[in-house]
Write a protein that binds this DNA or RNA. Structure first.
Lengths: 233, 233
DNA sequence: CCATGTGAACCGGTTCACAGCT
DNA sequence: AGCTGTGAACCGGTTCACATGG
């Protein structure tokens, strides 16, 4: 029934989309919906919507559909958006700053609690009521502020090192904006080998690569026809 | 053989990754590689690498592997990165500006040729040697400058309208950074109905949604174990 | 009678084993 | 012998049809 194995990762991406739609519906004062309605708005099939939800339980009423508020609450719970997430951003170039200011991040429980950049001209800068710090202070900061995630917004050639630093500092997940594949082999947390090394699940890495997005777009413009649906970060 | 149907869209994402790896190898003076080597660097299986390449032809030498320069050239050709792509960016908030300055975009043949924002305080601003224009001028601009793609970097509640405007202006593809599902139903290009309406293939929409990335990350941190590999924009 | 929830069929993409070239 | 290229097996995710329950 609920929460067992075999949940396609694509389903998770879609749940995020459904949640966004439900929030929009709620803000419009609409309080009932259906798998058909959601499907149309999310551009997937109604089967898909029902199956995706079924992985986690049953949230609707047969013959009636779904209550927007209920389904929204359940999806937020499933996705872990009821508790706060403390986030640090590595790299305060234009992209890092744009992320720090991104509206909507704080609507959910994402709090940017620390901003880091090694550039002396950036250290000490005030961004969004936070003072940019040198990465040397990351490790202490992560521990003292219970940081959950680190975002990588540094140049591509620095990304692997920064990922390493984040892992050593003890974050649980990384959102990587740099156009590189982070090598998980190297993401070993020192001090874990001594313990049960089975224990160490590894850090979750999710990628957001818009250079790649541009290139895929170029390909599909040249080759229309072999375009299906796609799910992207 | 080459270029027929049934190419998984995930394969396209991986090709982009392989290309990036080849460019790195070349910059390091390495000029031979293999499916095994590429696989490790891209964090996929060697089977996968060979299969992905096989969709488009044969580029290696049996027993020898691949020549970096050759494979790189072929991937660039396949992905359409040998010809220039003229791009406009809609929305000159922090994200739009970060994209406009993104290093790497111009390494490939992506040229940002026009920047648009309706905000009077932004119109006329000089960004990257370009003057920010009002969207009213988009249609003429797209025609006169042969714009291929439009990037949407506007607030979520404006994204659908901007998509509509881009389509009407005649772009072939859209890279949408806003956290909304663009409704393709509405993306009708006026003046197409009169002609063969079969002809209108539609505009390609690719999404880059980092709010969604954050949420997926939250989910996978809470539920490690049901994490496989993922491909993301 | 409606729309959800779900076991089963189907399909497409990944994995595999091996054939083919160097 | 080594590594690519590929038809076939396999597996997982999507689609479907229908049973379930309001």
């Amino acid at each position: 029934m609920s929460q067992s194995l075999n949940i396609p990762s694509a389903a998770i991406s879609r749940l995020v989309t459904y949640l966004r739609i439900l929030e929009k519906l709620e803000s419009q004062g609409i309080n009932r919906t259906s798998s058909n309605d959601l499907a149309e708005r999310a551009q997937v099939s109604a089967f898909q919507v029902r199956k995706d939800l079924a992985y986690f339980g049953r949230f609707g009423t047969r013959g009636m559909g779904y209550t927007v508020a209920v389904l929204k609450r359940e999806l937020r719970r499933i996705l872990g958006l009821t508790r706060p997430w403390n986030v640090v951003i590595m790299g305060m170039g234009r992209l890092g700053q744009a992320i720090a200011h991104y509206p909507g991040a704080s609507d959910y429980e994402f709090s940017f609690v620390g901003l880091f950049d090694p550039d002396p001209s950036k250290v000490g800068m005030q961004i969004r009521n936070l003072e940019v710090m040198h990465p040397d202070h990351l490790k202490d900061f992560v521990r003292s502020h219970q940081v959950d995630m680190g975002f990588i917004a540094v140049p591509a050639d620095r990304a692997q090192d920064v990922a390493q630093i984040l892992v050593e500092a003890g974050v649980k997940g990384i959102l990587n904006f740099a156009p590189v594949v982070i090598q998980p082999k190297m993401l070993e947390r020192p001090g874990v080998e001594p313990e049960k090394e089975e224990e160490w699940e590894g850090v979750i890495v999710e990628n957001i690569d818009f250079l790649a997005g541009m290139k895929r777009l170029a390909f599909y413009i040249l080759n229309p026809g072999l375009r299906e649906l796609e799910e992207v970060g």
